[in-house]
Amino acid sequence: MNMQMTGLRAWLVQRVAAVYVGLFSLYLLIHFTTDAPGSYSEWRDWVGHPGIAVSWALFFIALLLHAWVGMRDVLLDYVHNTAVRLVALLGLALFLLAQGLWALTVLLGAGT
């Protein structure tokens, strides 16, 4: 996560990530309404399938990048004290990074 990520690039990352997250969510909705996994092994096999696991990993990466840009905008709009703002942005970055590592660990566990 790049603190220097400014203007156009952040805007583009936000939109591209939004489209991926939206499409993947739609895919999940369709998958769970038409072909919901009926048992633990079915569920784990589905998540552990290489193509699905990679799509899930990309989903979390896109989701967290999208969250970063969105929350960064919120903090920049409402937190004006420079020190508080920096601490808040740092806390946000660490939080999102931790979420990403956690999600990827869970997905790696399902793939083995």
Partner: peptide, 27 residues
């Protein structure tokens, strides 16, 4: 709604982790 969703990310990952943690946790 975006802020609310960011706050609920940990719950989502936690549920995913438990759903994949074994048949007992799944059920």
């Amino acid at each position: 709604s975006g802020v609310l969703l960011v706050i609920s990310i940990p719950a989502g990952i936690y549920l995913l982790q438990h759903s994949l943690g074994g048949p007992d946790e799944f059920s």
